[in-house]
């Protein structure tokens, strides 16, 4: 059984009397350990797909399960619990709380699970070590560079030891060099066996990931199998033109 199973997921919005099909029957499986990129032009529905995958939104119809739990009929409360326990998010704009220091930001998901303060501190320090920022624990997000902030966000996504990590354009707001470092961090996490889904509009970044899904007009256009991209070729692919069907 796949970690994430989507069956005929549809999402419709009503905007001023017009019905928009953001997702129009998406079916896909994500296996544990996959490193998948979702690509597509803006307006293709890739963000909507990620929101549904990330339990931030519920589909209009279709069924979905994550780690064996049915999501499509879960209550908002249950969705919040799943987000807190099984999912880690990395956003384009980092989304750290400016009033909290780095360690407190990383602790945030644990607070809502009722984990004791001591255990929260241990876990957040551990997560910061994974991204190499343990010496910045007392800093404010505003005192860090963009790349460091994004690594803090990754630490926050890791702190609850999630089953799957979603990253929405994690390099979109960074210069290419820093973006590369962030992508390296993701690759490292993938090698450690984590399941990662990465949303991007950049085919070069998508080329780094073993699995690729392309979304067009709310439908899956292409599902590239893992075997097509070898792990050794990741960085060689960078900068070279990507065959784009």
């Amino acid at each position: 059984m796949a970690l994430v199973e989507l069956r005929e997921i549809r999402k419709t919005y009503h905007l001023g009397g017009e019905t928009i099909h953001a997702l129009d029957g998406v079916t896909l499986d994500v296996q544990a350990g996959d490193f998948t990129s979702i690509i597509g032009p803006s307006g293709s529905g890739k963000s909507t797909l990620m929101h549904i995958l990330g339990c931030l939104d519920s589909p209009t119809s279709g069924s979905m399960s994550l780690d064996g739990v049915n999501i499509h009929d879960a209550t908002p409360r249950e969705l919040a619990k799943i987000r807190g326990e099984k999912i880690g998010f990395v956003f384009q704009f980092f989304n750290l709380l400016p009033k909290l220091n780095v360690a407190q930001n990383v602790e945030l998901p644990l607070i809502y699970q009722g984990i004791s303060s001591r255990s929260r501190k241990e876990k957040s320090m551990h997560a910061l070590k994974l991204v190499g920022l343990e010496d910045r624990a007392k800093h404010r997000p505003s005192q860090l560079s963009g790349g460091q902030q994004q690594r803090v966000a990754i630490a926050r996504a890791l702190v609850n030891d999630p089953r799957i990590i979603f990253a929405d354009e994690p390099t979109g707001n960074l210069d290419s060099h820093t973006g590369e470092m962030i992508l390296e961090t993701f690759c490292k996490l993938h090698q450690e066996g984590r399941t990662i889904m990465l949303v991007t509009h950049d085919p070069e970044i998508a080329a780094l990931t073993p699995q690729k899904i392309e979304i067009r007009d709310g439908k899956i256009a292409l599902d590239v199998d893992a075997k097509l991209a070898g792990k050794e070729s990741r960085f060689k692919l960078r900068g070279s033109p990507e065959p784009n069907p």
Binding site: G54, L56, P76, R77, A80, K81, R83, G84, E85, F89, N95, L96, L97, L108, P109, Y112, Q113, R156, N160
Partner: peptide, 16 residues
């Protein structure tokens, strides 16, 4: 609003 969104994204429930 954004802070509330972040808190919700990382697992805060409505009642939290």
């Amino acid at each position: 609003v954004r802070e509330i969104g972040i808190r919700k994204a990382v697992g805060a429930t409505t009642s939290d």
